[in-house]
Write a protein that binds this DNA or RNA. Sequence first.
DNA 1: TTGTAGGCGTTATCAG
DNA 2: CTGATAACGCCTACAA
Lengths: 379, 379
Amino acid sequence: MTDVLPDARAARPPEPATDRALRRAGRRGRASDRYPLPVVARVTLSDVARQAGVSLATASRALNGSSNRTVQPALRERVVAAAAELRYAPDANAQAMARGATTSVGLVVHDIADPYFSTIAAAVTRAADRVGLHVTLASTQNEADREIELVALMQRLRARAVIVAGGRLADPDREERLRAALLDLQAGGASVALVGQPLDGVDSVVIDNAGGARDLALALWGLGYRRAAILGGPTDRLTAQNRRDGFVTAWAGAGGRIDPADVVHGAFTWEGGAEAMTTLLRTRPRPEVVFAANDVMALGALSAARALGVRVPEDVAVAGFDDIATLRDVVPGLTTVRIPLDEAGEAAAELALTPRGDEVRATEIRTEVVLRDSTPPRG
Amino acid sequence: MTDVLPDARAARPPEPATDRALRRAGRRGRASDRYPLPVVARVTLSDVARQAGVSLATASRALNGSSNRTVQPALRERVVAAAAELRYAPDANAQAMARGATTSVGLVVHDIADPYFSTIAAAVTRAADRVGLHVTLASTQNEADREIELVALMQRLRARAVIVAGGRLADPDREERLRAALLDLQAGGASVALVGQPLDGVDSVVIDNAGGARDLALALWGLGYRRAAILGGPTDRLTAQNRRDGFVTAWAGAGGRIDPADVVHGAFTWEGGAEAMTTLLRTRPRPEVVFAANDVMALGALSAARALGVRVPEDVAVAGFDDIATLRDVVPGLTTVRIPLDEAGEAAAELALTPRGDEVRATEIRTEVVLRDSTPPRG
DNA sequence: TTGTAGGCGTTATCAG
DNA sequence: CTGATAACGCCTACAA
């Protein structure tokens, strides 16, 4: 009665995965293991193969079958059943090693809570999803030096594509180090895309910050504003610099003048905007209009103004930059410069997920002034 | 003259990594390889060891040295120098395999562009960062079934901890499958934490949605509102359900009444809120106050109201839920229920990154009503 | 079609 | 203190 055992191979001694797991658990933890994993039995492909009574190779082909899928339906079913029964989940790290490629897309941002970055992140996630990749998120927490570290992290992770959404720095030394890290990444076979300003040798989605700021300045001038001040964002961020300069230059071109003292710098955050606005309102003659280098700063500025009893827009008009989605429908609306961030994110993903030739590619993203109630026409 | 070669081992035939890389590049790509990697030479620890004239083991100890760091300074320096020269970056996947543990924290959200989730994500990222881990982000794009898939993804990735921020579903079948997936994860040694509602057998950060909605209802009642309607969010999301029910129950308790017909459902998105508000304003007697199940919907509702020529708060008052940061300082402010999302995210990370005993843990997050201008006292 | 065996890059055990 | 060498889990020529 051989039918008791459907297959002779099934009679092999069980030798369950638990042994291996226990062995492993016995290892001494590393110093960096602040959070040791408990003792667990991980089921491997070998377990599945044994349970199904087939070789490792067959199990592999049946489950994660490569292009030439050549496993008899009957066997395949047995394997699939065994996998299900054992609740087998392939180890992506092992697969990455064996295949020589991960399925991970790295995304480096400054602050994921900032709508600017979270909008980009959503687009990148969507795009990665479409092609069966997943995203590894890293945030600099607004510390310039961390950007390079995080790019290096992505290299260690062997991310297949890396998108750096941060925007370049005004510091040439740091820039060079970042560039070196990105080139290493590319040398390692990853494709890289930047969002913001371009950088030599790397694909990028270029956002026309200067142009947007210029257009905004002209629009405000056209509305009748003459005395402007700027909440200028961080001094070391090129994005902020471009917006400031674009605005100042256009203002001057129109016949106005913005004194350097009327440019107050601060972090690209709510707090940064609030502080800068407070400084501005306390120490200088009140301007007619304040241009904040991004919407989040503009929000902080609104709050600061209110705290000081200064009404917007009656006492001072305020404009921002980015047109973050959550602010589009509040009343009174915030005048700003719209960046189609979804497009930017998609474009970055497109660049990063598409093989490139020899030439460095750049996708341009146009900006558009959106006038709302925070900057009414000025008699 | 042996001093030409500093070390006899250095005389080994070079046999550079390039060969290996080229060999690998020759492999046929898999069907799923929509984006094949170019031919590249990845430098490995062996290359570093050879270059430094030491064994693989020594190189490993010198660079990624485990607890018992026992390598002579001289050798260590040689290795470090070689690594720098070769621009060596350890392969995290290989390390994960060898060490039996990754450094990855999985985070599952519905939509990273939603401030609710991006705020949580920021907190989780910060917490992970503090302990030297990185986060892998996955987004369901608001598709209920994807949540389970993504949990499975995290298992394949061997995430060391997984945080599911989605909020439970009203569908018991799906819930059971999700629970099974989470238990698998835990069985695999990962720790798991939920944000929103609890689930049997899994740690969770519980947000008091019903209580918040109740408090809001009572506050609005106290302001003099008597006819209320609800933009109820998705019917299959427990978070939405709890908020709706909490509001309705409290309203009834106060002596009011909300007809089921006055609860219009929609997605937890801007569009969902806009559509639901439009339906509400078009097809029913206008309520005095509209409670949107979250702030993002409330925003959509504001926009819809304006589009229909209905003024807020003069013609209809509006309240939301979440108190997302970007909305805190707009004028007129949106009445809402504040959830300390940073705290929730931190708490989730704390649960997920901290070894737990046998008991299932639950951290409670309190909510707080924030009355603003969108719901002025009603004569 | 299926199985055997070698390799992916690193860590860790165990002798020297 | 250092060096072979065996895992880790999986994939894939190559052989059967």
